[in-house]
């Protein structure tokens, strides 16, 4: 096949040239990474979450490196939506890629009000609802852990904008499919699966938690199998596209997510290892599709879906 395979992807009305999003809070405003990576070769940057009021964030330490990953507890440090819209956002307009705004909140009303004002701005191509931040004394994550509350947030945000709404789900739930279905029914255009996994590390010399916030969110390759399964389960529960994320570092990792049912992927912590990772994945993904004679990514999405192992294998196995 001589034509170059397409990596373009559509999330609701949002069209992206590449299926690679840079995870919220992991890529700054894009300015920090611009000298180190080709921003014309990424799908979009998901900006750091903004809240209704300014937040100083958590006390230090905010980062702990762990085996095959890291814990973070930044605590949604941000200047609040007023300051953000007046003094920050215009600076990002020159980025050569699309920008997705991220909204966090502590009430349904918070989400709706911030989403409305953010989505109204031309610099913002789509909005991600962060209903799953594990680092704000569990208030933020409360929404994403409850299908009913998730639906309320999404419905309220949906009524404020026609731009693509991505809902970022928490892995810290019993049944992610139920939350996924609730978000879809309430009007989400896409789901981001998953946010970080709650975790903790203890300083055994000082006998105290290593993070200033005590608990944090685990990211990196350590959580990849958790994320792949979450994508697989969510993909079977909904028809809207899924942005798969959690420890993606290589082409192989990316393929796992597409085959599990993701239409796009998000890269976060891997940018801290090597900012060339997103560019490398795009190049290798294109070569992979060409080698396999596939015209686009659609040929991969969900192709590993075999449902779940049939229950009869376990019948009678009481031990």
């Amino acid at each position: 096949m001589s034509t170059v395979p397409s990596l373009a992807v559509r999330l609701g009305s949002l069209e992206l040239p590449y299926p690679t999003l840079m995870g919220s809070g992991c890529y700054g405003t894009g300015e920090e990474f611009a000298p180190l990576a080709d921003l014309t070769r990424i799908g979009a940057i998901v900006l750091k979450s903004v809240t209704r009021l300014p937040r100083l964030g958590n006390p230090m330490p905010r980062i702990v490196h762990t085996p095959a990953g890291m814990l973070n507890a930044i605590g949604l440090q941000n200047p609040g939506i007023d300051w953000y819209l007046e003094r920050e956002l215009h600076k990002y307009a020159e980025r050569p890629c699309k920008l997705i705004g991220s909204v966090a909140g502590f009430s349904v009303d918070d989400y709706a009000r911030v989403c409305e004002r953010l989505a109204a701005r031309a610099e913002i191509a789509a909005v991600e609802l962060n209903v799953s931040c594990p680092n704000v004394a569990s208030e933020g994550e409360t929404f994403g852990c409850d299908p009913g509350l998730t639906a309320e947030v999404v419905r309220a945000a949906r009524s404020t904008t026609d731009k693509t709404l991505i809902v970022k789900l928490s892995p810290n739930v019993t049944d992610i499919a139920a939350v996924a279905r609730a978000a879809e029914a309430a009007g989400a255009d896409a789901l981001a699966v998953i946010n970080t996994v709650r975790g903790m590390a203890i300083d055994v010399d000082a006998w105290r938690p290593r993070l200033g916030n005590v608990a944090g969110g685990l990211s990196g390759p350590a959580i990849r199998p958790i994320a792949v399964l979450a994508v697989y389960e969510a993909a079977q529960a909904v028809r809207i596209p899924i942005v798969g994320q959690g420890g993606i570092e290589t082409l192989t990792d990316a393929l796992e997510f597409f085959l599990a049912g993701a239409s796009a992927i998000s890269i976060g912590t891997a940018n801290f290892t090597d900012p060339r990772v997103p560019g490398r994945i795009v190049t290798e993904l294109q070569a992979y599709l060409a080698r396999r004679g596939l015209a686009d990514l659609g040929a991969l999405v969900g192709k590993a879906n075999q449902g779940f192992t049939t229950p009869h294998q376990y019948e009678g196995d009481e031990g």
Partner: peptide, 8 residues
């Protein structure tokens, strides 16, 4: 984290 200002 990132060492270049992206993650706070």
């Amino acid at each position: 984290g990132c060492g270049i200002g992206g993650c706070w």
